[in-house]
Nucleic acid binder design. Structure first.
Lengths: 226, 226
DNA sequence: GTCTATACACAGATAGAC
DNA sequence: GTCTATCTGTGTATAGAC
């Protein structure tokens, strides 16, 4: 699959995140009109992402966020009771989207090689589409409260397990070589993450996501295909 | 080479960093006695690393640092004129050590395969020994001023170039396959960085640095050896 | 060389007008 | 539902005693 095809198959993640955040936090949000909330959550999350990526979430002040989102300080606090809550909600909703999309594409495949290619491609395509969110999520995870931090780690391990399960299945079917499949999944994950962690570098070198996906698949295949 | 042998071959990086920081910033530091400065720089850098890794440099206050280092606020400001200066100096000195050690080991090798193994091992061993410093450096690089940020990026690209040069040399000698060696070096670097970025994960799984180095070398060899 | 005490700015958060 | 004005705590940095 190409990235351009992937884009046509999935809905707009930005609005999904806002709607899901509204539904899940209805009781905590003081404003009641859905349309108003979603419109403003989008402004808040957009500004959080933009400022957070450029200077870090800790360094972003509520005044920065107020200026960036176009809402007053008072208005911000009628949507979230604290600065940290914005981070927790935003990261939590993003994680859900990632899980949903990965599973939706993986369930279509049966062959381990196709599954491996799919998980590599879809992970890269997702991080391409939501690259700022992923970067932000990675960099700010350590500033979460213990409970949310745990969820973040579990989310990481979940995608890693998707990969290791595929490697193990392929080994059992005599398509992949034997080896430490958990460690293998770990380094594959590292290569996938590099795509959004070093996005500027790859952009400067004019390397696109389709090319990167193909390269990673070749690299991994050389080691795993019998 | 094993990590245990590596440790015997290199001097104590902690004291090196402090001494180099003193020599290079003699004029900016108000205190003049070398022994006093080095002793206190060690306290300051140790505390910066410990607190910075756990809560991030931005979130670390000068009061935290004062408590953690055992020096008063006033004393801290007789060594550094601002909080940011501590970060710049500390990261800058660490980068020098990394460069020196990598070059010292690489110069001993001639064969591309041996060179590739050396750069993988020594990079991993260095990041094992200074793992907190590397993690800190990676996470805080984006908070540096533009000038220091540029140095940080250049340092990254420098180690990447060490790898790509080896791949290219090996290709010319018909030992390695052809391909995009810059992209190859990039993903190898990603795998090397994962070692210090996810240190907790590997520790929990009881994977040691020698085993990780051997695995990465096998992974890379499968793709590159003709 | 190191300390304590403090200046001053700015952060997160809230009250109450509109 | 959104705003402005403001409270209160805490941040970096410094002055001056010891």
């Amino acid at each position: 699959m190409k990235y351009s095809e992937f884009l046509k198959l999935i809905p707009d993640s930005k609005i999904d995140i806002c709607r899901a955040a509204f539904l899940e936090h209805k009781d905590k949000i003081q404003i009641k009109k859905e349309a108003v909330v979603i419109k403003n959550l989008e402004k808040i999350f957009d500004a959080t992402l933009k400022i957070g990526v450029s200077k870090g979430f800790q360094a972003m002040t509520m005044r920065d966020l107020s200026a960036g989102s176009g809402l007053s300080m008072g208005a911000l606090y009628s949507y979230f009771s604290s600065k940290d809550e914005i981070l927790s909600v935003y990261l939590g909703q993003g994680r859900k989207i990632v899980k949903q999309v990965l599973e939706a594409f993986l369930v279509k495949e049966n062959d381990p090689v196709a599954k491996l290619e799919t998980v590599i491609q879809i992970h890269l395509f997702l991080t391409e589409k939501m690259h700022q969110w992923f970067y932000f999520s990675y960099m700010e995870a350590k500033n979460l409260n213990p409970e949310e931090m745990e969820k973040s780690i579990q989310s990481e391990l979940y995608t890693e397990k998707l990969v290791s399960d595929i490697l193990i299945e392929g080994y059992k079917k005599n398509i992949f070589k034997d080896g430490d499949h958990v460690l293998g999944a770990s380094v594959i994950k590292a290569m996938l993450q590099d795509w959004y962690l070093k996005r500027g570098k790859y952009a400067r070198r004019k390397i696109g996501v389709d090319h990167y996906a193909q390269f990673i698949m070749a690299f991994v295949s050389a080691f795993y295909l019998v």
